[in-house]
Design a binder for these strands. Structure first.
Length: 260
DNA sequence: ATGTCGCCTCATAGGCGA
């Protein structure tokens, strides 16, 4: 079973990229972020055999889940703040697995209410992820976390020292999720390996120079982590014409043992 | 400070968010 996640930076601008990639890689589930549109083109994915659900808003944010298997939406908002109207969270059940697509707030610039919103959002996510651990349902949280977990997850720590994605408060909250029992799928299979990024900004030919950051992640609950077989960052879509600034991450899980 | 995208509108340029 293959789960993937991709921040597409506008679903309208990237629709054909996503469709082509689905055909080429054929994942069972694809999480999308940064749809940047009020409408989600569900039909364009249904044609390829994917059911979908999406949480959208005009111009900003937006997350979706595409699935070959039947999908049941559980929750479209991150609990903990009824006044939060950003489209950043979607939880669904697919084949007995809780699948969550998140677009965690960027938080820049540091020292503003945007950074406070990011930290509060992470605290709310932490509470929710603790609840999910306790209910024992196999859970995969994927998406754009907007967190650079460690020094090796960026080209040069000095370049990110003042960025919200790399602040001690940000990284401590991400580490707490791992401490709680979740597994960073990519890092678990590639310990200590630097230079593997999921995002390169559009400036200064940063992709060609591999000056990027690893900020798109899959966190797996313990019961899913035991099934983790592979985790790959597919850089090919980032090299296309008119790319997103992010590229997809894929996780391969062993089939569930029968009777479990 | 700057670079580049994609979105939107008190729209064909400029602001916002990333």
């Amino acid at each position: 079973m293959i789960f993937a996640s991709w921040n597409v930076n506008s679903i309208r601008a990237r629709l054909e990229h996503v469709r082509n990639w689905l055909t080429a890689r054929n994942p069972d589930v694809l999480l999308l972020q940064e749809l940047k549109a009020a409408e989600f083109p569900a039909l364009a994915f249904q044609e390829l055999g994917y059911e979908s659900a999406a949480v959208t808003q005009k111009a900003y944010n937006g997350v979706a889940i595409l699935s070959r298997l039947p999908l049941e939406v559980v929750c479209t908002t991150l609990p903990g703040d009824e006044t939060d109207s950003h489209a950043r969270f979607l939880e669904a059940m697919i084949g007995g697995v809780r699948v969550v697509s998140i677009y965690l707030p960027n938080g820049n610039p540091v020292g503003t209410d945007k950074f406070e919103y990011k930290l509060t959002w992470m605290d709310r996510l932490t509470r929710q992820m603790r609840i999910w651990l306790e209910d024992g349902v196999p859970t995969a949280i994927g998406g754009d976390f907007n967190v650079i977990p460690e020094d090796i997850d960026c080209d040069k720590p000095e370049n990110w020292m003042h960025d919200a994605l790399f602040q001690p408060e940000t990284r401590a909250r991400f580490r707490a999720l791992l401490g709680m029992g979740y597994t960073d799928a990519f890092r678990a299979l590639h310990p200590g390996e630097g230079g593997h990024f999921t995002f390169w900004d559009f400036f200064r030919r940063n992709f060609e120079r591999n000056r990027g950051i690893r900020i798109d992640h899959f966190l797996l609950s313990p019961s899913l982590a035991t099934r983790l077989e592979a985790c790959e960052i597919d850089r090919t879509p980032r090299a296309l014409e008119k790319p997103s600034d992010h590229t997809p991450i894929l996780v391969t899980l062993a089939a569930r043992a029968s009777g479990q």
